[in-house]
Every structure is written in structure tokens, then in C-alpha cells.
């Protein structure tokens, strides 16, 4: 654990020194929030749209924004850079566990995502968005989003370890977009056309989105929240496991 924190601290220091890499990961999701809300807010007015639970359409769109921001981790691309310049070998030659090596940058992604989520919420609050589940809900929302950031960055880090190629790693990151559009992104699942509803039901990201949305719009609905946490926990476990396995076999 200590070595995870040491490597995580380095990754945070690195992020602070490269704000130009961090800024788009905040601005692009906010851009999507504004554009999506602008395009559909009139179709779904607050007063006559039951699924908004009395909030604006922006509140309904907020989970997609948070997930998008959490999917823009830089861990994998920095890892490719380190593989290419040889520093990764230097780290591999130290007696730290391969698990620590895998988790170092991912722990920094969790922290970065936490800060990013807080910033997005602070931007959203003046526009009337409220977290219906209260302070506990805010904490759960932050944890859930940070968990997603770790899982998704872990997936990209796995691609980086396998391909050792920046272009391939970057391309793998785009997988999030089809996954996002196969969720109840614009309307609840029950309002989707049947084929889309089936696709969304099979898509694990749906349960993440519904958990976040429930925290924002409803209250502490533990069944929905539980499904979101189960998806994140499974995702993190799988990606960390494959990362450790790949690091151990790395030649």
C-alpha cells in the first residue's frame, strides 16, 4: 500500500505539472452537458416531465458528464511514454509488487476524478442542479465516479501494457462513446425503443448511470445504487487483476 501511495504521489505531481493535459478532460464533458441540455431541454420541461423529479434536464444529463470526465484518465498514455523511454523498466527493476506498479497511477486517477467530480458539481450547483440524496449522496456519487475512473483507466492501462503503443491505447479510449450511447443517456430506459432498451440493459455502464442519476434526482435508492457499485467493483477487480497478471508476465 505504501508503494502505491508513493507512485500515486508521483502521478499527482505529474498531473499538476501538465495542466494542459488535464483541462480538456474537464472542459469537454462540460461542453457535452451544455450542448445536450441545450438541444433537449425544451422537449423535456421540468414541470411536465415526471422522470426529471422536479429538476432541470441538465440534472438528468449530469451523470453522463461525470462518467465522461472520469473516462479521460491519462495513466495509460503516460505509461506508454514510460515504456518507450525505458523508465518503466527502471520501476520494474525495483523490488515493489507488480500490484503496486499497476495501482500507482490508478490511485492518482481516483484522486483526480474525485477533484474533477467536485469541480463539475460546483459548476452545476449555480445552475440549479441539486443532489437529492443529500451529503451522503454526494459522497457516494464521488466514490462511484472515482471507482469508474480507476476501472476505465485500468482497462486503458491494460491496453497500454499489451500494445505498448500510444495510438492503440488512444483508440481503445474511444470505446467509451459507443458504450455511452447504448445507455439511457437522453431518456430513462423504459422510454427507449425495444432494441435500444435491450442493448442498454446488457450494457454495464447503464447501471452506473442509473445509480448516479438516482443519487442526483431521487434519493438513496439502495437497489439502484447497489447495482452501480456492483458494476464498478466488478470492473475495478477485473481490470486490476488483468493489469497485475500482465505486469507479472511483461517481458
Amino acid at each position: 500500500m505504501k508503494t502505491v501511495l508513493i507512485l500515486g504521489e508521483r502521478a499527482v505531481r505529474e498531473a499538476k505539472r501538465t495542466p494542459d493535459a488535464l483541462l480538456p478532460t474537464l472542459l469537454i464533458p462540460i461542453f457535452f452537458l451544455i450542448v445536450n441540455t441545450g438541444q433537449a431541454a425544451k422537449i423535456f420541461p421540468t414541470g411536465s416531465t415526471p422522470f426529471l423529479e422536479g429538476q432541470s434536464y441538465a440534472a438528468f444529463q449530469l451523470p453522463a458528464t461525470l462518467l465522461l470526465a472520469a473516462s479521460f484518465g491519462t495513466a495509460a498514455l503516460y505509461l506508454v511514454e514510460e515504456i518507450e523511454n525505458g523508465y518503466f523498466d527502471k520501476l520494474r527493476a525495483t523490488p515493489i509488487s507488480r500490484g503496486s506498479l499497476a495501482m500507482g497511477r490508478l490511485s492518482a486517477e481516483a484522486l483526480k476524478s474525485t477533484l474533477m467530480t467536485i469541480v463539475i458539481l460546483l459548476i452545476a450547483f449555480p445552475f440549479g442542479i441539486r443532489i437529492a440524496s443529500g451529503p451522503i449522496g454526494v459522497v457516494l456519487l464521488v466514490i462511484l465516479t472515482a471507482g469508474w475512473a480507476v476501472g476505465y483507466s485500468g482497462f486503458l492501462q491494460f491496453v497500454a501494457l499489451k500494445t505498448r503503443n500510444a495510438a492503440a491505447t488512444n483508440s481503445a479510449g474511444l470505446i467509451f462513446f459507443p458504450l455511452l450511447f447504448l445507455t439511457p443517456n437522453f431518456v430513462p430506459r423504459s422510454l427507449l425503443a425495444r432494441p435500444m432498451e435491450i442493448a442498454a440493459t446488457l450494457n454495464p455502464v447503464t447501471y452506473m448511470m442509473e445509480a448516479l442519476r438516482s443519487l442526483i434526482l431521487v434519493d438513496l435508492d439502495w437497489v439502484v445504487i447497489g447495482k452501480g457499485f456492483a458494476v464498478v467493483a466488478g470492473f475495478v477487480l477485473i481490470t486490476v487483476f488483468v493489469n497485475i497478471k500482465t505486469m507479472a508476465k511483461y517481458d
Binding site: 505539472r17 514510460e82 523511454n85 527493476a93
Partner: peptide
């Protein structure tokens, strides 16, 4: 027990 300095001096340029 070993120290390693490999080809091309692999270092983290942001530190």
C-alpha cells in the same frame, strides 16, 4: 541487491 542503469537512461522527464 542490484542497481540497474539501462540503455538510453530511462528517466521520468516530468520530475
Amino acid at each position: 541487491r542490484i542497481g540497474v542503469a539501462l540503455q538510453e537512461a530511462g528517466l521520468d522527464m516530468r520530475q
